[in-house]
Design a binder for these strands. Structure first.
Lengths: 226, 226
DNA sequence: ATCTAATCTTAAGTAAATCATAATAGTAAC
DNA sequence: GTTACTATTATGATTTACTTAAGATTAGAT
């Protein structure tokens, strides 16, 4: 069983330290101190839990939450805030925050809440945590499928594959892929993703019998390992 | 509409009044002022949500929670308490409380939390409500019947199924389904629903022996799980 | 800096999936 | 049997996805 991934967006190193020291080993903590890179990390990692400190650098907290929700991230988002104002709290709930925890918080409480969510998710499919026999080489931008030859990908192809692999088994929307690859400024306004998906398929699907990348009409793409 | 049932164990009538006045009509509130009868009520009603005020008469709050959990009730339990002591809070979490809300509470907050829980049931599991196993995956637009193969549905087919499931056991009129699926502007003026019902039946009924979707002449359709 | 080759974006054309419609066949109610 | 309702089927419209090629951009080499 893979670990439960937790992404923490936190500008304060001491909070990070506290959490990373007290999280049981069944959790794997990812840490980002900047909102923008944090969002990309979330897309890539596809965590089971997200914790956001409203003091995070780079974007105001509300915007961070908004963006993450926009992308279609389903994981519960815990907000850490020192502001106990009810109106603010409700705003975050409205935007889809899962819980609003007021600082100074108790690690025990956070752990309890993570646990509660897990229990309630005995329904949900958290099994998509396995890694396939795909081997990615980020520096060479190459991938090896099973024991086959090394396949060299281009930048965007590689990133798409990276994004799909981390969300393996789940549908990934074009928007999510877009957010992962491009800066907000340089987003292509054409069917660029479709084109790169085609290139990617030509390289990692076509030569092999079985297609790993499938299209979910109206939703996005999905990578499956059969 | 199949309402979401909420059982509130509360000895203070004013809290009851506040909640019953502000709960949207999609919730159906059951109220008990005594712990023992309250527990019986919970068993009887099988609610989707439980709210317990620790001031409840008849049993100490911890015992109430313990008992309910012992019985095997799966619904999330919200604790209302005027005691903000962390240790106590953690004790309740440990026993499986879903959330611990400190009085005086805001109704808005409770509503937000109910909503959050619903949203997180992205994958709807009906095995709670019946013996048969029926899982919807909103993301993949797929459904699994009795642990068989995953069946992929189209957008409208899925929505119809969703609508029927929400009203499981009850007849749903075409109008209701229409409202559930389309914007007021784009409502089809043909027998579109009938056609999609046929497609849906072909996928989730035909391959299995027993038909789950039945027609009620002049009224609409009904989904039953046997 | 300039050129070149590789990479990326764009747009247009084609294919496929989905959906609404309407015509026809079937069924229930009276 | 007649009427009102429902089921089935096929067709075309619409939306969405795939493919292709050309033009734009970028990175690396000279």
């Amino acid at each position: 069983m893979g670990k439960l991934k937790v992404v923490l967006l936190e500008s304060n190193p001491s909070v990070k330290k506290t959490l990373s020291l007290s999280l049981p080993s069944k959790y794997q903590l990812f840490f980002e101190s900047d909102a923008i890179t944090g969002i990309k990390r979330i897309i890539l990692v596809n965590p089971q839990f997200i914790i956001i400190d409203l003091n995070i650098n780079g974007l105001p907290g509300l915007r961070v939450l908004e963006k993450i929700k926009q992308i279609g991230v389903k994981a519960p988002i815990f907000i850490l805030s020192s502001n106990s104002d009810l109106k603010l709290k409700l705003e975050f709930y409205k935007l889809g925050a899962y819980d609003y925890i007021i600082k100074p918080f108790s690690v025990g409480e956070i752990l309890a809440k993570l646990k509660i969510f897990e229990q309630n998710l005995n329904i949900l499919d958290l099994s998509n945590r396995s890694r396939s026999n795909f081997k990615l080489n980020k520096e060479k931008l190459s991938v090896i499928r099973d024991n086959s030859q090394e396949i060299t990908l281009r930048n965007i192809e590689f990133k798409i594959l990276e994004c799909l692999i981390q969300n393996i088994g789940n549908v990934v929307s074009r928007q999510k892929i877009t957010q992962f690859i491009w800066d907000d400024k340089n987003v292509p306004w054409s069917n660029s993703i479709d084109v790169h998906i085609k290139y990617l398929r030509d390289k990692i699907d076509k030569p092999f019998g079985n297609k790993l990348i499938s299209t979910v009409h109206g939703q996005g793409y999905r990578l499956e390992i059969k």
